[in-house]
């Protein structure tokens, strides 16, 4: 049952226009900054936000097409949705929360409770069956919410930032839970996230949205290695620069990168990890073309390293060791020379 969607929806000043295709068993991750339209995509798929144009088809079934005046209501779509803030029914215990979907999709109260119990056993939550949502931790609530969505055996599983608003200690466990149950799920999963690791670990296909438009789509590896927007580059922890390639040299405004031959000429994107950047207090002599001046804008700890924000004509992030930082005695506002190791740079057409 493949998903074929061209989702066009207006919402005041914001409008969404994106194409979405997926095969059963696959996981599509939606990445993008806040307000990019990720949640609107989920709501449109669920039937909560109407399309103004375009179409949505799931297998043989046309779910929505404004031109043909077709709109299958949210109730009649076989969709399981997990909202970011869980939205477990506070007046029902865990068992009845999970039984809610099966019951309203036609099962008797007794049968739906049985289904719910089976699902809670499968997801390891059966011990919480008679608890109320407020008696559970955020991570437990989210696991119940995911179980509740799965219990209706939906064609489409929609997850809106399932790992957001969960404390760091529980996220690891929840991510493992999510991976296991998503990989067992036979339908199509659409996952909204703004954490790159979720997209990399869970998804088969990544769709990057910005201002309601698809700016990049591809495999997680492809998107991670060759980001096309500064947002995704920042998510992946990469520097992203735009330049003109000519004879093995990329011109970046006032900086140059010699990357060797074999690259197409014209407008290119250049990405590299902050650890490929070194900082110098004087102009380094070697590989002079891969270096340019800048000013230190900010210094913050980043794992074992120190992340230095360098501004100037070619702004970059640099990860240096604390030892290097003290050796250079660098502080905010200081002038530095930036050097980039050409072998660690990836170049691709813009």
């Amino acid at each position: 049952m493949t998903l074929d969607g061209h989702l066009i929806a207006g919402r005041g000043a914001f409008d969404l226009d994106c194409t979405l295709n997926a095969v059963p068993g696959s996981v599509v991750a939606l990445l993008g900054p806040n307000g990019a339209g990720k949640t609107t995509v989920l709501r449109a798929l669920a039937g909560l936000t109407p399309l103004s144009a375009g179409h949505l088809r799931l297998g043989e079934r046309l779910l929505e097409d404004p031109r043909q005046q077709v709109r299958v209501t949210a109730q009649e779509r076989r969709v399981g949705m997990v909202f970011q803030d869980r939205l477990l029914f506070p007046h029902l215990n865990v068992l009845d929360n999970v039984a809610f979907g099966p019951h309203h999709r036609g099962a008797s109260r007794r049968a739906s409770r049985r289904t719910a119990r089976e699902w809670l056993e499968r997801t390891g939550l059966v011990e919480f069956a008679s608890r109320r949502p407020h008696q559970l931790s955020g991570g437990q609530q989210q696991r119940v919410a995911i179980t509740r969505a799965l219990a209706t055996a939906p064609d489409l599983l929609l997850l809106d930032e399932p790992l957001a608003a969960i404390d760091a200690a529980a996220v690891v466990e929840l991510r493992r839970f999510l991976r296991q149950h998503i990989s067992d799920f036979p339908g199509i999963t659409v996952l909204v996230t703004h954490q790159s690791v979720d997209a990399l670990v869970l998804a088969d296909q990544v769709l990057v949205l910005d201002a309601g438009r698809t700016v990049q789509s591809g495999s997680p590896v492809e998107v991670a290695r060759r980001p096309r927007t500064s947002h995704v580059a920042a998510l992946m922890g990469l520097n992203l620069l735009r330049g003109q390639a000519e004879g093995g040299v990329i011109h970046l405004g006032e900086g140059h990168l010699a990357v060797g031959a074999g690259h197409a000429a014209g407008e290119v994107l250049v990405s590299f990890s902050p650890s490929a950047v070194t900082l110098h207090s004087h102009r380094p002599d070697s590989s002079a073309r891969n270096t340019w001046p800048g000013r230190i804008d900010g210094i913050a700890p980043h794992g074992d390293a120190v992340r230095v924000h360098v501004s100037g004509p070619v702004p970059v992030l640099a990860d240096v060791t604390p030892r290097a930082l003290t050796a250079l005695s660098l502080a905010e506002g200081d002038s530095v020379w930036v050097a980039v190791k050409a072998v660690e740079v990836s170049v691709y057409p813009a």
Binding site: A46, G47, L48, T73, A74, Q75, E76, R77, V79, G80, M81, F83, L87, F89, F100, G101, H104, R105, G106, R148, T152
Partner: peptide, 9 residues
Amino acid sequence: EVAATFGAS
């Protein structure tokens, strides 16, 4: 909306 996505009229 949650209830609607679970098929409740």
